[in-house]
Design a protein around this nucleic acid. Structure first.
Lengths: 283, 283
DNA sequence: GATATCTCTAGGCACATCCTATGGACATCC
DNA sequence: GGATGTCCATAGGATGTGCCTAGAGATATC
């Protein structure tokens, strides 16, 4: 057991998916696979149930996660013990409001770990060095590095009658109180349907929307990553396939800070699946 | 930075000596050397001042040690999280009373780490599977695996006039109140000289002896390892070179428990310096 | 002057890690 | 129903890192 394996473990725990975890760790999927296998052998317990659509943490994994998390944090802190906060470049990153906090913070690790960078996180409409946004929000002069894509799902109160259905159609949602998310980047899309009726509430943030759902006020259509970690909320797929592609956007014209350039390079190397011409390391 | 490097670091910190640390980690000295160098480069600070007779921890090392220690402990705890205490063999180890606790406990790590072993530590006169003793205490039917050898030194109150001397002769100690350690394995030796005069105190344990020294009651002659960690006690070499060889002793006749056999094997592989015929791994 | 101790460097070997490629098992889509 | 996409596991090959031996250099000790 070493810290590297613990990092891989927490990534898998967070993503519930070996392939996705591999991407956030900037390694290939088999590396994650063998690391988890080794860890399970060493601990003498099963950490994840593999099923066809990702993996599910066992009770052991839950238990192990808290201690793994602590060890990693302490190791990171130890590494920074003697680093002076000298000569830091400020990197301003715009985050769209509907991002999954845990996943995003994990993604930004390579930046926060650098002692020469002071990271500033702001809204995505402000003046930024780069933005993490949905592809639909991309401006003309921006490059886009895809990070992940995620579907929209319906979040409903666990006791709601519609939880009995495996999948929700637009017809199902016709006469049901809905919770609007005023900040949603897809609001133009949802707007059409929503305009036909009164919305039950207009949420100012994702947290707020989820709380309203949990309280039984209504149903919300939210990105999968947002609903995933929330308790007291049932999740059902919706029939209309709406997806968003989340990625890093940066202005093509302006020069990129060194730290950000490294970061983008890292992202591109791993995320861009080489289809015909492989762009590997050392290029 | 990985846990392995942290282990090496704590070993060096404890032993104040790369070579000795290498032995307690069961690796060669260059491995330790490069690990420390790497760690220093990564942290951006000097951890040890190298001088010709070992190394001295810097203030950074003091600081880093507490956090390194915690990370290692947590990692060890994590490893044992899911191990049941099932089917443990009890290994009874006799420790002579004058052992340096920190060093000895570190030495026994390979045994305490095993989930199939319950370690019992007792006095070295009781019925044991093996004993950690001075070579002078070896019985006829016992094998001896040397661990380290250490000199006896004089421990004196910091304000004592004799602290002005770099080295103490027997003459210096002739008319000085001495503290006897009744349990000392060398008592036969010291006895001769001590018998000529009244001793200022007879200490029941090393801790007690050191406390008496610190209190200014008198001077004690103790193994180097005992005096090293104690504050308020000055240490001076003595002119007569008395050494003790500490090692693991086990009865040649009785069969050895598996865990103990592994342990002895490990010790022998590393401690026994190959002089002409090297007995390396995989043998 | 011989010996012992302690650290560092050099060169070589072996294992660990990582990669790509591929296969099997399901879902999903047209 | 076949094509496609997703996801995990395995195999085989490249690479890198850790570890070892050997020996040099420096300094105490006998």
């Amino acid at each position: 057991m070493d810290i590297r394996e613990l990092r891989y473990f927490t990534a898998v725990y967070r993503e519930r998916n070996l392939t996705a975890a591999a991407r956030t760790c900037f390694v290939s999927q088999p590396s994650i696979s063998t690391a988890i296998t080794n860890l399970e052998a060493e601990l003498g317990t099963t950490l994840f149930i593999r099923h066809k659509k990702g993996v599910a943490p066992t009770a052991s994994a839950e238990q192990f996660h808290t201690v793994a998390r602590r060890i990693i944090d302490e190791a990171d802190a130890a590494r920074k013990l003697f680093r002076k906060p000298s000569a830091r470049t400020t990197v301003t990153l715009g985050l769209m409001r509907t991002l999954d906090a845990t996943r995003t913070i994990a993604l930004l690790k390579p930046l926060t770990a650098r002692s020469d960078v002071a990271l500033r996180l702001v809204g995505c409409d402000e003046r930024t060095d780069a933005r993490i946004i949905s592809k639909s929000m991309l401006r003309d002069d921006e490059h886009f590095v895809p990070l992940w894509s995620e579907r929209y799902v319906a979040a409903l109160p666990p006791s709601h009658p519609l939880t009995l259905k495996d999948k929700l159609s637009t017809a199902d949602l016709a006469d049901v109180p809905m919770i609007d998310r005023c900040h949603c980047e897809q609001s133009a899309f949802f707007g059409r349907a929503a305009r036909r009726r009164q919305s039950a509430a207009i949420a100012q943030s994702e947290d707020w929307a989820m709380a309203l759902v949990a309280a039984g006020v209504g149903i919300a259509i939210v990105p999968e990553g947002v609903a995933k970690g929330v308790s007291d909320v049932a999740i059902r797929p919706i029939e209309v396939k709406i997806k968003r592609e989340v990625g890093l956007a940066y202005r093509a014209s302006a020069p990129l800070a060194d730290a950000l350039k490294d970061f983008v390079g890292k992202l591109q190397r791993v995320r861009a699946k080489p289809r015909n011409n492989s762009s590997r390391r050392h290029d």
